[in-house]
């Protein structure tokens, strides 16, 4: 039985699937010491099986569900003819194999690049730029419900505004980081460093839980130590 969590591989230790799962787990861990044939086998299995897994998943999800059932729908629904557009672009992509007209494969590519650029431009502009600026437009001085000033929160707000402004100064490309502007950029880097250090420290714990999960599987589910 597992010590901490119930997981997908929940069966008796005699099970052949469980045995393989444990072997593969150990094989991947062996890479930490150095590259070795056991790791290479695990890697080869992983690459082959997962590539096949995604090929099948894409086939059923995208070609069968989205395309085929879209253009040849069940009775009663009207077919989505425009989906053929995707198929045609996909087919043009395959022309890449040909040496002579392989350049046509650039059409679907440029279609994708154009669409991604347009889509992301608006997406990022709204969700990143506008929303973040709007969230920062807050009163610096924080009051308690009895109208006394909360100094600590006020200081926190001040730090947030200072950090956003100086952080942006750091990113300026067309102005040399000199003088007052340079000081601003310098403070900006400090904020970025705090951000990176804090985020790093904060994630350590969740990374440890991943290892705990694996060892729990090895000792508990597989070896049945507890």
């Amino acid at each position: 039985m597992s010590l901490i969590l119930a997981r997908k591989e929940k069966r008796s230790s005699m099970d052949i699937g469980m045995f393989f799962a444990a072997l593969l787990t150990l094989g991947i861990f062996s890479f930490l010491y150095k590259d070795n044939p056991v790791y290479k086998v695990c890697e080869a299995i992983f690459v082959g099986v997962s590539a096949g897994f995604w090929a099948i998943t894409y086939f059923f999800d995208n070609i069968h569900k989205k395309f085929w059932l879209g253009v040849f729908p069940q009775e009663g629904d009207s077919p989505d003819y425009w989906l053929w557009g995707g198929a045609i672009l996909g087919f043009l992509m395959l022309l890449r194999i040909s040496n002579k007209i392989g350049w046509i494969a650039r059409w679907p590519l440029s279609f994708i690049v154009g669409a991604t650029a347009g889509l992301y431009m608006m997406l990022y502009f709204v969700s990143n730029a506008l929303n973040q600026v709007a969230d920062t437009m807050m009163p610096i001085v924080a009051y308690a419900s009895d109208n006394s000033v909360l100094w600590l929160d006020t200081f926190g707000n001040f730090i947030v505004v200072l950090g956003v402004v100086t952080g942006l100064i750091y990113f300026f490309f067309s102005k040399e980081h000199k003088g007052l502007f340079g000081t601003g950029a310098q403070v900006g880097t400090w904020f970025l460093m705090i951000t990176f250090g804090a985020s790093f420290g904060y994630t350590v714990m969740s990374r440890m839980s991943l290892l705990i999960g694996r060892l729990d599987f090895l000792f508990g589910d597989w070896l049945g130590l507890f």
Binding site: L3, I4, L5, V204, M205, M208, S209, L211, I212, L215
Partner: peptide, 17 residues
Amino acid sequence: TPGLLTMGPQTLAHTVI
């Protein structure tokens, strides 16, 4: 105590780091 049991390894690992 699943909470304490997960905290044990995490505390030690944090301390080691």
